[in-house]
Design a binder for these strands. Sequence first.
DNA 1: TTACTTACGAGTTAATTACGAGTAAATTAT
DNA 2: ATAATTTACTCGTAATTAACTCGTAAGTAA
Lengths: 200, 200
Amino acid sequence: MNTFLSPKKQRFVDFVESFTANQNRPPTFVEIMDGLDINSLGTINWYVKELEKVGVLKRMNGFNGKRSLSVLERHMDNALPLLGLIAAGYPLEVFENTESVEVPSSFVHPDNYVLKVNGPSMQEDGILDGDFVIIKKTETANNGDTVVAYVNDEATLKEYHYTNKKIELHPKNAEFDIIKINERVDFRIGGIVLGVIRKY
Amino acid sequence: MNTFLSPKKQRFVDFVESFTANQNRPPTFVEIMDGLDINSLGTINWYVKELEKVGVLKRMNGFNGKRSLSVLERHMDNALPLLGLIAAGYPLEVFENTESVEVPSSFVHPDNYVLKVNGPSMQEDGILDGDFVIIKKTETANNGDTVVAYVNDEATLKEYHYTNKKIELHPKNAEFDIIKINERVDFRIGGIVLGVIRKY
DNA sequence: TTACTTACGAGTTAATTACGAGTAAATTAT
DNA sequence: ATAATTTACTCGTAATTAACTCGTAAGTAA
């Protein structure tokens, strides 16, 4: 979320941020005006509009006067890195400019990350194309866990099963086949799914 | 809570809080009026309503006069009230002792709340038994939205469709039937689904 | 009754938002 | 190199709305 801001805009959000931290409430437009030595409310409104456009500020409903601002996308308390796009049978596409995805804060942990789901291979388990899955990095899994599985360097989302000393990876979509792991394939677990988030 | 309170509202809850601590009972409206130098009970009632809306105060059933207030829900950063359990074809079961569910903070808004999903009626849309759905209170919906629909006082989760001036509610599970809304049924929309959260 | 809560309508004030216009510096086109 | 245009701000005023206020009437539980 590294939007570069012009110095003036930067100064604006810095002010909002520190005011909020100090006073435990966001500033009013007049307070910003005074603090930043600007002489018109129109100007403040212009800044707010611009910064809203790029997603750095957000208006909350409300309290003072009409609305209130809060600085957003800066201290993102409940965000996890969005590391990539995971698909059925295709390599994990890794995102370079790590974006972030907001998650319930109970999921926030240094070992966790988020992947965006690409294909329909887990559809019948209620993990749809476009969903975000929260992954916990781990090398082991229990029967029935949904895991990020690396098979010959392809990453997929599958259900993990271990029976009769054989590992099987079950897609949850009749169109896809079960993968059986034998000695000839290079296999490892990348993590297990802790949760799913879908935004409409 | 994610909501900053205006200084006046803050002062209100502070008063309630400290009164309760001192007297070991919540204040009456008149006591708040005196304590805060306000001249109208209407004003007190207005504060209580507002603060209830944002989930900071809650009325308990009661002991002085009719009800009593208590201060609730401070400092829960990304939580929304868990209002009930919604099922396919059964009345909405409403939770009294409002629990909370953590959600991505982008969902946190006074108009939003969470329901826990009970039946499998939306399974094919990837909303499973046990999932939490984040609902935005609204009376209107667009075609294809997943809505909380009240039909003759039964609440269900369905996909909303409006075609040829007829409203239809589509479950997403072959086992369930489409509901057609006519004049004989009492119908309203309770909200639309903004997101889904699943925790394993 | 008494002691309290709730509902309603209406008003004031303070803050936000819309709008039209202007400027200086940086970019781009000629 | 110069002119034209765009970008990043700035201003002031008017219109609008959220936040808060009041008083009174109606409702409820003991």
